[in-house]
Computed example of a mutant assay.
Amino acid sequence: MVYLRNRIVNRYINIRNDDEKSKEIYEKFRYLIDSPFPPLPLGSYKTNIMYTTPGEMYRKGYEIKYINQ
């Protein structure tokens, strides 16, 4: 969520604040910018973690299972 929030803010930070388009964009993404991270529903989640060296000389991935109880 933090990564997504930062991407949105950084993408639109150069838009003038008094611009009508800026206000529309803010309203569209306001729940992501101003709200706390929502709790994950109970259950198990799979994700892939990928390690890559600079220059992509070496790459290794792992599947991890998270359980939210």
Rank of each mutant, 00 (worst) to 15 (best):
R59N: 09
R59Q: 15
G55S: 01
F37N: 12
Q69D: 12
Y66Q: 03
Y62C: 07
N6S: 13
Y51E: 04
I25L: 11
E20L: 09
M1C: 08
E24N: 11
T52D: 07
S22C: 12
K28W: 01
K23N: 07
R16S: 11
I15K: 08
R5L: 04
P41H: 00
K21V: 06
I49K: 01
G61Q: 09
D19K: 00
Y3F: 10
V2E: 15
S44F: 05
E63K: 07
E20H: 01
N6T: 05
N10C: 04
N10L: 02
F37M: 15
E63C: 09
Y12C: 01
M50A: 09
I33R: 01
V9Q: 04
E27M: 10
L40S: 06
Y66N: 05
Y66G: 05
P41C: 01
N17A: 07
D19T: 00
M57P: 01
M1L: 11
Y51K: 09
N48K: 14
M57R: 14
I67H: 07
V2N: 10
L4H: 06
Y26C: 01
P54T: 13
R59E: 11
N6E: 14
S22Q: 02
R7E: 12
Y66V: 10
Y58R: 10
E20Y: 02
P38D: 03
P39K: 04
T47N: 04
K23D: 13
M57H: 11
M1R: 07
R16C: 05
M1A: 14
Y58W: 06
Y31W: 11
E24P: 05
T52V: 13
Y51F: 15
E20R: 00
I13T: 02
Y51G: 11
Y12T: 02
I15S: 00
Q69R: 05
P39T: 11
R7S: 09
D34M: 04
I33F: 06
P54Q: 11
T47Y: 15
D34A: 07
F29V: 08
N17F: 01
N48D: 14
G61H: 05
N10S: 14
T53Y: 03
I15L: 11
D18H: 05
R30Q: 15
P39G: 05
I13M: 04
P54I: 09
G43V: 02
K46V: 08
Y58F: 13
R59Y: 04
V9K: 03
N6R: 11
I33C: 03
I8L: 12
Y62L: 09
S35E: 14
R5A: 06
V2L: 12
F37G: 07
F29T: 02
I33E: 02
I15E: 05
N14K: 03
E24C: 03
Q69M: 05
L4C: 06
I49R: 07
T47M: 15
I49F: 10
R5P: 02
M50W: 07
Y26H: 08
R30K: 15
I13W: 00
Q69C: 03
I13N: 02
T52M: 04
N68K: 15
P36V: 04
P38G: 04
V2C: 08
K46A: 08
M50R: 14
Y31H: 15
I33N: 01
I64H: 10
N68T: 11
Y51A: 15
E63R: 14
N68A: 13
Y51I: 15
R11G: 02
R59I: 14
